[in-house]
Design a protein around this nucleic acid. Structure first.
Lengths: 118, 118
DNA sequence: CCAGGTGTATTAGTGTAGCAATACACATGT
DNA sequence: ACATGTGTATTGCTACACTAATACACCTGG
């Protein structure tokens, strides 16, 4: 899995789990790049995508900050459910393929939720 | 999303949902290719991957058949749960990101399961 | 055997994702 | 103004994913 995607997923998970809250600052592009031995541009790509997704706010000269969830992109409850649906479907298909029962799959999701929400 | 991957996902979903059962035959590479206006090799790639994943059995000169689930790749319950985990995590993160509550996410999974299992 | 069905190995072309090097634009503190 | 921090536009390169064209190998029914 590409470096920049790993970074995106990692930050998204932290924000979704409220371990990074709106207003918190994120390590600078150069800090992360140096720590990982990667080109700053690679990190910038990740930060950019996070900004495009509304997860971070950019502030040139200062750094990037966790954005307040604006519900803008959200839409109605039904729409949001429809957006997650493909990902859930993928997990479900894989689970059934492995012989897991519906109850076992639900249990996995419960575990995942508990781990993410402190 | 690549053509061959769409085919793979589609067949996997059908098999996982028991709409295609072990022993059922699958349309031939050339039939599907003609129907979609695609090169037979593209369909073959999909069929091959499905065979590698143990979903289909090959039978040169006759066609491809849905394989019996062998529990082969399965392993212990814990191992299988661990395998689905990343996919579930991805769905969960996305759901939380959209402001869905844990209960709503579980509901989405329930719906997905009900739709797949007849 | 032969005709017609099956899947596929091989090869080649095309596009693009991923990453890095460079140089630049913006903001802040002194 | 200047030094120093921030993020980034641009460019170029490389590797690999995806698709297709062709020719071949296998099996079955007559």
């Amino acid at each position: 899995m590409p470096i920049y995607r790993q970074l995106v997923d990692q930050v998204e998970a932290l924000v979704a789990g409220a371990r990074l809250r709106p207003g918190d600052t994120v390590p600078s592009v150069r800090q992360v790049a140096a720590a990982l031995g990667v080109n700053p541009m690679t990190v910038s790509k990740a930060w950019s995508r996070l900004e495009a997704d509304g997860v971070l706010d950019r502030d040139r000269g200062r750094g990037m900050v966790v954005a307040v969830p604006r519900d803008r992109e959200a839409g109605s409850l039904a729409e949001r459910k429809a957006q997650v649906r493909p990902l859930v479907d993928q997990a479900v298909v894989r689970g059934l393929q492995l012989g897991l029962t519906p109850a076992q799959l639900q249990a996995v999701m419960k575990t995942s939720l508990e781990e993410k929400l402190p």
